[in-house]
Write a protein that binds this DNA or RNA. Sequence first.
DNA 1: CCGAGGATCATCT
DNA 2: GATGATCCTCGGT
Length: 200
Amino acid sequence: MENYLDSIGLDLSDAVKAAPALLGHKLIFKSPEGVTSGYIVETEAYHSDDPASHGFLGLTKRNNSIFQKHGTVYVYFTYGMHFCVNIVTGEAGSGQAVLIRAIEPVAGIELMMQRRKHRKLKDLTNGPAKLTQAMDINKDIDGTNIYDGPLTIAPGIKPQEITIAPRIGISKAKDHPWRFYIEGNEFVSKVSLEKIKKIL
DNA sequence: CCGAGGATCATCT
DNA sequence: GATGATCCTCGGT
């Protein structure tokens, strides 16, 4: 057995398959200050034929890593102050990824509290830019790989119920129901009124 | 609880 | 010059 990811056969061949498959797994980041981790409770898929995907318009300096092999970490900076982290999926060059939108804090909570100005536990990592702030994830790890980089995936919890809902925070292709979250988890950024369907 | 508006800058047109 | 895969504060209900 090579590592955990191979052992569970995590399917990163397609963003829409990988997004729900990642739910429940533990996201671990080793920073110089210490290790922080949390269960992934909310994701969004960005497919290659998707106008909302950063890979849609082709290769640029900023999105280079979304065109690398699956498992590559793609971090981008937006709104002048925020970072968001993605895990690349599919064939190299296809330009698709899964955005990590929220996690449930597990380890390094004190550290995350400090970085988040001692906000309440529930406001620590319930949003894509909040979790990167709490874990201190930035452009430095853009292009690293979850198989051997500082950001990795490990065993976590088994979701009892997964809700599929429209993506949020974007202006294009909002209609694609490619947001996934663990139903009932209080660290999900925003519970949707429009629940397309539920799967186990 | 909820919605509106501001912050702030890399990237793209 | 405009935009954005967001967050926070503030004001109303």
